[in-house]
């Protein structure tokens, strides 16, 4: 139950098993070519399988990969 005075977990970075990295807040993510990408949402999903057509953002592509190609 929610107890007043008790801090809830609310991490800035969440690694989703087999899926993206969630990033809370405003950030600039630099890709492998040194190109900066600004986040625009309260929470952004950053691609970890490296196969997203919207790289560096997640587009759900990890779901169609065989399990061994998905991020840990």
């Amino acid at each position: 139950m929610s107890e007043p005075g008790v801090a809830f977990e609310h991490p800035d970075v969440v690694l989703c098993p087999g899926g993206p990295m969630l990033l809370r807040g405003r950030h600039t993510v630099e890709d492998a070519d040194g190109v900066p990408h600004e986040t625009t949402r309260p929470v952004t999903a950053v691609c970890r399988c490296e196969r997203s057509a919207s790289f560096p953002w997640c587009d759900g592509t990890h779901k169609v990969l065989p399990p061994k190609l998905r991020p840990a």
């Binding site: 989703c16 929470v43 999903a45």
Partner: peptide, 10 residues
């Protein structure tokens, strides 16, 4: 595409 890649996780 991008919004719901976040929303499904949330």
């Amino acid at each position: 595409v991008e919004a719901d890649a976040v929303h499904e996780q949330l």
